[in-house]
C-alpha cells in the first residue's frame, strides 16, 4: 500500500457538477479526504451522494473547480490510472463482474497488463483466501449469492492495491449475517490503512465504522463531523 497517511489523498476544491440539461447535482463543494480515515457519506435520496462518489473517483469530471487524487487532477488522469489508486464498488456488484470464472475474474486485468503468470497466481490465491472465496472456485460467478458477488467484486478491485476505496451503498440487499461479514472485511481494510468513503443510508453500519460523517442535502454538504 502507498504510505500517504498524513497528506490528503483526495482533494476537491470548489467542485461543481451537473448532468447535461440538469440542475447542479453537486454545488461548489470542497472536501479533503485522508487515507487513514473512514468517511461515511449520507443524506436523503437525490441529495447527490452517488454523484459525489463518482466525482471523487473521476468517473464524472467537475464542470468547475477541481478534484485531485494524490495531487493530480482527475481531468488529466485516465480511468485506468485512477483505478490503480482508488477502487470503486458499484451499488450493484453484477455490473462489475466480467468473467464466468472466479479465478479469472480476479486475474484477467493483471494478465492484460502483462504481469508474470506466477505472480498472478500468487496474488489470486491470496485474494481468494482473504475474501473467503476459495471454496467457491468451481461455481460460475453469476450463480453466486449477492454477498459472495460483492466479496468477489471487492477482491477484484483490491488486487490492484489501491490506497483508497469508495463503496456505494454496500449494505443494500445484505442480510444481518452478510452485513456482519462486510463489517469484518471493512475493519480489516481499515487495519491495513486503506482510506475509505462509504455512501450509505444504513446509520447503524455507519456509526460502527465511521471516523467522519458527511451529510449531503441538495448537492451541498450540510454537516461534516468527526
Amino acid at each position: 500500500m502507498e504510505e500517504n497517511n498524513n497528506i490528503p489523498y483526495i482533494k476537491m476544491q470548489e467542485a461543481a457538477f451537473r448532468y447535461p440539461k440538469g440542475d447542479f447535482v453537486i454545488e461548489n463543494t470542497s472536501l479533503t479526504l485522508f487515507q487513514n480515515e473512514f468517511t461515511a457519506v449520507t443524506g436523503p435520496n437525490g441529495s447527490g451522494k452517488t454523484t459525489l462518489g463518482k466525482l471523487i473517483v473521476g468517473i464524472v469530471k467537475p464542470d468547475c473547480g477541481s478534484v485531485k487524487i494524490l495531487n493530480r487532477d482527475t481531468r488529466e488522469m485516465t480511468l485506468g490510472e485512477i483505478g490503480k489508486k482508488v477502487g470503486y464498488l458499484f451499488q450493484n456488484p453484477e455490473r462489475q463482474l466480467f468473467s464466468m470464472n472466479i479465478r479469472e475474474e480476479i486475474s484477467f486485468p493483471m494478465e492484460i497488463r502483462g504481469i508474470p503468470k506466477e505472480k498472478i497466481k500468487e496474488k489470486v490465491d491470496e485474494m481468494l483466501e482473504t475474501f473467503s472465496l476459495t471454496h467457491l472456485e468451481g461455481i460460475p460467478a453469476f450463480k453466486l449469492s449477492r454477498g459472495e458477488k460483492q466479496r468477489l467484486a471487492i477482491a477484484s478491485i483490491l488486487v490492484n492495491n489501491p490506497g483508497f476505496f469508495v463503496m456505494d451503498e454496500p449494505t443494500t440487499g445484505l442480510d444481518a449475517e452478510r452485513k456482519k461479514d462486510l463489517s469484518e472485511l471493512i475493519s480489516n481494510l481499515q487495519d491495513k490503512g486503506i482510506g475509505m468513503v462509504v455512501i450509505s443510508h444504513d446509520l447503524p453500519f455507519i456509526k460502527q465504522h465511521a471516523d467522519r460523517t458527511i451529510t449531503l442535502s441538495g448537492g451541498k454538504i450540510i454537516d461534516d463531523s468527526r
Partner: peptide, 8 residues
C-alpha cells in the same frame, strides 16, 4: 468498471 480495474 473495467477501466477502474487499472486497464488503460
Amino acid at each position: 468498471a473495467i477501466q477502474l480495474r487499472g486497464i488503460d
